[in-house]
């Protein structure tokens, strides 16, 4: 079809523009604008002042939260990628087509179970008197304190992101041309060398996309740090919730949100650069 805008074309094109304009772009722009509003006597009035920004960005607790969130999300992305890789490798290269399809189906299942209920289950499992410590106790270990710590939060993050990372990695590994790998073998490359010089570079985009999604999800999640990580120190998302729910401090919460979006943009751009940038 040529670029000819007919009524028929507009009927199908406009709904999204109108809807996303009204209910996606609109809310986000309002939120950015709100970060410059004035709050006085628990009432917000539209304004253009930098009080909220100054207030948040000069506070130590904001930067503590920022550091914790950034660090944990990075760790979650790295751990998820490393833990997922052998599994994705096995799924892509060691299993039959049918087995792989079933495995992927079962990896999709968790997306449709309540993340909250799964986190609650981890609360039960990881508790001081919970099943895991009971089993460890039989072999004379523990009890370990896993809840309300970075360990607990990390278990939650991995619960959230691991299935997605495995799926994305598996797709990118399965898409590699098998002839490339066999050629490397025939030319006498060791398995290690084949992995490093052929498989990893070919699957680079999928691996990076997986890590970025893990980062984005962990960066924005508030359930795991709150219910498994003990919310001390708070993450940025916990900060947003606390600030929003305490009176009319929405503009300050908006400052945190804008900082988060900025960080995510920076990470996404860096990742796209790494994925599609200079090839050897």
């Amino acid at each position: 079809m040529k670029d000819r805008t007919t009524a028929h074309a507009l009927i199908w094109r406009l709904p999204l523009l109108i809807w996303q304009g009204l209910f996606f772009v609109g809310p986000l722009l309002l939120m950015v604008a709100m970060s410059f509003w004035l709050v006085k006597n628990y009432r917000m009035t539209p304004d253009f002042i930098f009080d909220n920004w100054e207030r948040m960005l000069t506070r130590g607790y904001f930067w503590d939260a920022y550091r914790v969130t950034l660090w944990r999300a990075t760790l979650a992305a790295v751990l998820a990628s490393l833990i997922a890789f052998p599994a994705s490798f096995a799924l892509a290269f060691k299993l039959s087509e049918t087995a792989r399809r079933w495995a992927l189906f079962f990896l999709v299942v968790p997306f449709f179970t309540s993340y909250l209920v799964r986190v609650y289950a981890w609360q039960v499992l990881l508790a001081e008197s919970g099943p895991i410590n009971a089993v460890l106790g039989w072999v004379g270990l523990g009890p370990f304190t896993m809840l309300n710590s970075g360990v607990g939060a990390m278990v939650g993050y991995l619960t959230l992101v691991l299935p997605l990372v495995v799926i994305l990695q598996t797709f990118s590994l399965a898409a590699i041309d098998r002839n490339l790998i066999e050629a490397a073998w025939n030319l006498g490359a060791s398995p290690r060398r084949t992995l490093l010089r052929v498989i990893l570079p070919s699957a680079k985009v999928g691996l990076i996309v997986g890590a970025v999604f893990a980062f984005i999800l962990a960066f924005g999640d508030f359930v795991s740090p709150f219910y498994l990580g003990g919310s001390k120190p708070p993450t940025l998302s916990i900060l947003i919730i606390d600030t929003t729910k305490s009176g009319q401090q929405w503009p300050r919460a908006a400052v945190v949100a804008v900082m988060m979006i900025g960080t995510l943009f920076a990470v996404a751009f860096a990742a796209v650069g790494a994925a599609y940038g200079r090839r050897k």
Partner: peptide, 10 residues
């Protein structure tokens, strides 16, 4: 969380 805040205000 950000969607939530933006939606709440809007």
């Amino acid at each position: 969380v950000i969607m939530g805040l933006a939606m709440l205000a809007w």
